[in-house]
Amino acid sequence: MKWVTSPPASAYRLAGDLGVRVVVANLGLACCSMEVEAAVARGLLVPDDGQDPESTVLLVSGTVTDALAPAVLSARDHLDGEVVVVSFGACASTGGPYWDAPTVTKGIDQLLPVAGYVPGCPPRPEALVAGLLDVLRDRP
């Protein structure tokens, strides 16, 4: 089966000087993605300026179905260099409220290694920033 995928459309940086230069590629699949947009609206994230980042984060925000799982892997492969995967919200982490659905993947850690989980349904925009900093500051 062929899948139509493109690189994640929206790439952001953390606003302000938080000590990390990161590009956050938001793979928005469901309502959690609205909170990523809320983080942009509040100025916690700013559009990517194209400079060379220290880290690249693939932020999976939303419900992943088994049908969509190849697209998540494809999105990771579309990003350059080492990619840190962060699971944003209950659905991406475990399947969330849909954990019993036969079509829903019970957490993206079944597909690819996950460096950090941000809990919430949906998480607040501040939780996104906190979760990203947790992941990036722990790294060498």
């Binding site: 475990t94 996950v114 460096a115 950090g116 501040e126």
Partner: peptide, 12 residues
């Protein structure tokens, strides 16, 4: 509080 992300699934 909202800052309780985890590095592992079990940490949630």
């Amino acid at each position: 509080d909202h800052d309780y992300g985890a590095a592992t699934r079990a940490g949630l």
